[in-house]
Simulated assay, not measured.
Amino acid sequence: MDFSCDSARDLPAMEITAALERLARLFLRLAPRGELSLTAVSVLSLLDRSGPRRLTDLATGEGVTQPAMTQLVSRLQEAGLAERAGDPEDGRVVLVHVTDAGRAALAERRAARAALLSGLLSQLAEAELDGLVAALPAIDSLTSLMPDERPATVRSS
């Protein structure tokens, strides 16, 4: 694969990539230490945002094997954070749902991160904070462009 930068849009893409990598690292460091892995949080968030999903769809979306996803969903189910139920449209299909306890765990995790982030944001200049707030619509638009399922391969154009 060729990942070279050839166009004028590639330079901002490289700078944005580097900034987002640093932001992702910061975000990971803000994660409260607990029982939920990043994959578990990602799955619960997807279920909360998009509704019930098949195990195979969850595995594909997270880039893990179906057996690994089955184990994760079993652990989430044992913890009361997710449940399996039949698909009302196709009795042969089992869908995974987030429970109220799963939603509460996500909310608690987000609140803990927000509290830590708030402390960091308070150290920024007002113009920097305003810039971050102004970027939120663009970040939302960017993240909505990527489907919930990961592509099998990434191709450069």
Rank of each mutant, 00 (worst) to 15 (best):
M1T: 09
M1P: 09
D2V: 13
D6P: 13
D6R: 15
M14V: 11
E15C: 11
T17H: 03
T17W: 07
A19W: 11
E21G: 08
R22S: 08
A24R: 15
L26F: 09
L26D: 12
F27G: 15
F27Q: 15
L28E: 15
L28F: 10
P32G: 05
R33W: 08
G34C: 07
S37N: 13
S37D: 09
S37Q: 08
L38C: 14
T39S: 11
A40Y: 00
V41G: 13
V41H: 14
S42W: 07
S42I: 00
V43W: 00
V43E: 00
S45E: 10
S45C: 11
L46G: 05
R49I: 08
L55K: 06
D57E: 07
L58P: 01
A59E: 01
T60P: 02
G61N: 01
E62H: 06
G63M: 08
V64R: 06
T65V: 05
T65H: 13
T65R: 11
T70V: 04
S74V: 12
L76F: 13
G80K: 02
G86I: 00
D87Q: 09
E89C: 15
G91E: 14
L95R: 03
T99V: 02
T99C: 08
D100E: 11
A101M: 04
A104P: 09
A105F: 01
L106Y: 04
E108W: 07
E108R: 11
A111H: 14
R113V: 11
A115K: 10
L116M: 08
S118N: 03
S118A: 09
G119F: 05
L121T: 02
S122Q: 05
Q123N: 04
Q123H: 05
L124G: 01
L124I: 05
A127M: 05
L129K: 04
L132F: 13
L132P: 04
V133E: 09
A134T: 05
A134Y: 03
A135M: 09
A135T: 08
A135P: 05
L136H: 11
A138V: 06
I139D: 07
S141T: 13
R150E: 03
A152K: 07
